[in-house]
Design a protein around this nucleic acid. Structure first.
Lengths: 199, 199
DNA sequence: GTCTATAATACGATAGAC
DNA sequence: GTCTATCGTATTATAGAC
């Protein structure tokens, strides 16, 4: 099963994820993508017969699964949920600065490029985000949140994160991520106070 | 001076703003843009001799100025700053749903497409966001916020807004904007409690 | 499953007439 | 300031040999 991670098809998905992050879906050519993946051009339409749109859908789903683990790991490390989420923001700030502000969110990039142009791709983006939203909500529920509170809070948390990445990339500065981290943590803690008996 | 708003050059800027919103910078061709603006192809390089990059820079600056008024108007209508900002989120939700989730943020779209590819365009996006951040911070300062609190809070507010637009467009649902609106308002009110003498 | 070649089109950009 | 024509190049996608 591990060989799936080294095959040509998987290299194409990983290259797509990387390129969509830095230059978006429309800004990435398939030839360039195949070259980056060190994959033969013939493999492109062998593995993705429906072309760029299919590749985009699968790259987005791939990205959704990959970063699902990061959200789950944040909660698994324990501590209150506010601190857990703040850790994710700080980790993202480090990751972004470490890549010279290239490695943004591949799903957000695809969304802004083609959500209004390709309905299948828009749906793929919605599903990818949903995977993360569910993971965040699950983490909050495990910390004592009622289900509907958890859903709403998760939407807010991921929104703040995605927007902060955009602003940080534009400014080439982690400030928006760090600023958002603090307020998001406080918002979670304020909400969590209602879940548990007051000390 | 008003004729600037009806000239060919201005029609090109407005068309660029609209198209970048719905299909991003890389996804928009210059021929398509000129056609949308009902501008002759010859005008493209007459008004923007440096080509697409220059057009992009000016579209982003144009968008920055346009929406500056919306942020200022929100605070000018009075009420506490939390309610003022919540109004902007709700207005954006209406605008987005009313356009069938096409009219996102043009600066965010350009940022994700080319922030890591064109340094001049990245700087233009940073300046555009900065215009909005300053307007938000000024509104908060007018409501009693210390300058550095205002800056940080503004970064958080705009991050939440931009991210919520991305999620709402992907889901074709205003939920992320509405969810974020509530938590952002609460965060502002919580912060504002420290600026004024407790009632 | 890979390779080469190529079709058909769109891209950004330029030239020169008017 | 506009119009038309066009140059290279890059794009997505196919075809057919191996």
């Amino acid at each position: 099963m591990d060989d799936k991670r080294t095959g040509t098809r998987d290299r194409l998905l990983r290259a797509g994820e990387g390129l969509f992050r830095t230059q978006g879906y429309s800004g990435t050519g398939l030839k360039e993508l195949a070259q980056t993946a060190r994959a033969p051009w013939g493999s492109m339409y062998h593995f993705f017969p429906r072309g760029k749109e299919q590749l985009g859908e699968e790259v987005v789903a791939y990205a959704g699964e990959i970063y699902l683990g990061a959200w789950q790991a944040a909660f698994r490390r324990g501590g209150d949920p506010g601190v857990a989420i703040e850790r994710v923001f700080l980790a993202e700030a480090r990751l972004l600065a470490g890549s010279d502000y290239r490695d943004g969110c591949p799903i957000a990039s695809v969304t802004l490029d083609v959500a209004s142009v390709s309905e299948p791709l828009r749906a793929a983006c919605a599903s990818g985000f949903e995977v993360w939203l569910d993971a965040i909500a699950q983490g909050l529920i495990a910390a004592g949140a009622p289900a509907d509170d958890a859903k709403a809070l998760a939407g807010f948390i991921l929104s703040a994160m995605e927007g902060a990445i955009v602003l940080s990339r534009a400014a080439k500065d982690t400030a928006p991520l760090l600023q958002s981290a603090r307020f998001v943590r406080q918002a979670i803690e304020r909400e969590a106070a209602g879940w548990l008996p007051p000390s």
